[in-house]
Amino acid sequence: MFDFRFYEIWREPEYIDRLLHGCLVSIELSTAGGILGMILGLVLVSAQGKSSPKLLSGFAQGYIETVRNTPFIVQLFFVAFGLPQLLHYRWSFEASALLAMTLNFSAYFAEVVRAGISSIPTGQIEAAGSLCLTKRQIFLDIVLPQALCNVYPSLTSQFVFLFLTTGLISEIGVEDLTWAGRFVADRNFRDFEVFIVLTVLYVAIVFGYKAIFNALNRYAFPWRSIR
């Protein structure tokens, strides 16, 4: 009954090439999306600061809620098919994927970090104020590092969650890991084996990410282990 034929995947060097290349594309795009999303996320966080104009902070809030309460696939299709038509400007599928991932992650990032910021005790801000630091310095030197440290675990799991949905970018023609898998499955008709292999690859990449996040954690937040 169980007639596994994984060799149907390794047999063709082209299949292996495609899968490896797909891995690379997936990793590259989600890493880039993660980093850009972080930057945009920080912008969103500061736009929600107490001293920023109501309109701006309202806009940031609305943006975050919109992204968090709609599926990634809809955002992706809008960015890939809607926006170019609207702006009369075409760009590559990879660019669309990257943009969608950036926009998506930035909202989750901003939400998590904002929660982290509001959990910083007021004593920290008062102490910094009494030392004559300006509002901006207090935010950048005191509040943000501590907030990032506190929410780091949720940030990384949020990123992993995003990574696990990136397979959807194959739907707009980006040749990522999922795309490579479907390419192979369409040719050797071993869908089950192919998707098992794909799953293993995704899980392996997640492990890689987690190892990197752990190392980064120790490097970036050396004070954490002590408390």
């Binding site: 004593g123 920290q124 008062e126 102490a127 009494s130 005191i142 440290c149 004070w223 408390r227």
Partner: peptide, 11 residues
């Protein structure tokens, strides 16, 4: 200023 709860920056 010195506070009751120290308020050192833990990071």
């Amino acid at each position: 200023m010195v506070f009751q709860s120290f308020n050192l920056f833990p990071h």
